[in-house]
Nucleic acid binder design. Structure first.
Lengths: 203, 203
DNA sequence: GTCTATATCCCGATAGAC
DNA sequence: GTCTATCGGGATATAGAC
C-alpha cells in the first residue's frame, strides 16, 4: 500500500476499512477496553484526528467491528449447520462452530459480548444478529415437540453450553493451539448431545 | 467514621480494607479495566499516593480483591452442597450457587475471570481456589464410575454449563432482579441434571 | 480527507515533608 | 501512614489550515 514519505500527506485508499482491521488487531492484543483510537491511528501512520472523518467516536468504530463480527460469525455457522439433517447433529455442529469462532476470532468474539455498545445508537448490530438466531430457533423447535416453552429452555441451554465451553477455552490463554481448539469443540459437541438426550429434565 | 475537616490530615481506621471495599464498588460500576487507584482514593478522601502504603501497585490491590472473591465464593457454595447427599443434586446445587454468586457479586465474579492477574506474583489466589475445586472434583468422581477421564469430561461440562448460564444472565444487564436470578439458577440446575442424565454421550 | 496543534482530562508512580 | 507536589504518559475530541 502506498505510503508517502515521513512528514508528507498520507492518502489512504480506504482509511475506514483500515481502521476496522487495525481495531481487530489491537483488540486481539489488549482487549476491547484497552483499544484506543489514538493507537490505531499511530499504527496506520495517520493523525489521531483522521478517524473522526469516518466515525463519530470510538464507540462508532467498535460498532462497525461488531457488525463485521456478526457477519463472519454467521458466515461460519450457517454452512456448518447445513451439513446435517438431524436437528441434534445440527445443534452440535453449531456449537462446534461457535467454539471455533471464539478461538480463532477472539477479538471479534470479545466485541460481540464485551463492547457494551448502545444498541439504540447502533441498530445495525441487532439486524446482523437476526438471521443466525432464526436458523438456530428453527432447529431447536424440531426437538421440542411443538412446545414453545420447551424450545426456549432448550435454546437457552444450548447457547449457555456453547458459551461456557468457549469461555473456558479462552481462559486458558490467548491464541489457543488448533489441537486444543478441536478438543474443546468436540467436547462441546458431545455436551450438546448429552443435554439433548436428557432434555426432558429441562423444563 | 471519623473524618477530619477539609484540608486536614485524614487518619483512616483501616485504609487497606476500605480500599478493597471501594475497589469492589468501582468495579461494579465500570468494570475491572475501568477501575483506577486514583478514583478509589478520591472516593475515600485520601491522597492518590496513600494506597501505595498498603499495596505495591494497582494489580496488588486487585489480587487482594480476587482473594476475597474466592473466599466469598467458597463460603457460598460449600454450605449449598452440604444440603444434598446425592452427587447429582450436589452438582445441581453448586451450579445454582455459582449463578447466584455471579448475579449478586458481579464485581467479584468479574475479578475472578477478567482481572488477568499474574499468578506468579500472587500465589495466594491459587491457594484460595484449591479448597473448592477439591470438593467439586470429589462429587464429580462419584458419577464417573471410577473413570478419571469421564470424571474430567463431566467436570468440564458442569463448569462450562454453569459459566455459560452465568454469562447469559449477566449479559442481560447489570444488577438483575432477584426473580430473574432465580429463574436462571433453576434453569442451570435442570441443565446440569439433564447433562448428567445423558452423560454417557460425553466421552 | 488528512494534517498540525491544542485544550482538557485522567492515570500510575515517586520524592520528600510531616 | 498520609500529605503535597510533580513527572511522564496517554486518551478523546475539536479548530482551522491545506
Amino acid at each position: 500500500m502506498p505510503r508517502s514519505a515521513k512528514g508528507g500527506r498520507y492518502h489512504h485508499g480506504d482509511l475506514r476499512a483500515a481502521l476496522i482491521g487495525t481495531a481487530v488487531e489491537l483488540i486481539g492484543e489488549r482487549g476491547v477496553r484497552g483499544f484506543s483510537l489514538a493507537e490505531a491511528s499511530r499504527r496506520l501512520g495517520v493523525a489521531v484526528s483522521a478517524p473522526y472523518a469516518h466515525f463519530d467516536d470510538r464507540d462508532d468504530l467498535l460498532a462497525a467491528v461488531a457488525v463485521r463480527a456478526f457477519e463472519i460469525f454467521t458466515g461460519a455457522l450457517m454452512p456448518e449447520m447445513g451439513k446435517f439433517a438431524e436437528p441434534a447433529s445440527r445443534l452440535a455442529a453449531m456449537a462446534r462452530g461457535y467454539v471455533r469462532f471464539a478461538a480463532y476470532n477472539r477479538p471479534l468474539f470479545e466485541v460481540l459480548y464485551e463492547a457494551g455498545l448502545d444498541k439504540v445508537r447502533h441498530p445495525e448490530i441487532e439486524a446482523a444478529e437476526q438471521q443466525l438466531n432464526e436458523a438456530f430457533l428453527d432447529t431447536v423447535r424440531a426437538l421440542a415437540d411443538g412446545d414453545e416453552t420447551r424450545a426456549d429452555d432448550l435454546a437457552t441451554a444450548v447457547e449457555a453450553t456453547a458459551r461456557g465451553y468457549a469461555m473456558l477455552l479462552l481462559d486458558d490463554g490467548p491464541d489457543p493451539e488448533p489441537g486444543a481448539v478441536e478438543v474443546a469443540a468436540e467436547r462441546t459437541s458431545r455436551a450438546i448431545l448429552a443435554l439433548i438426550e436428557g432434555r426432558r429434565l429441562l423444563g
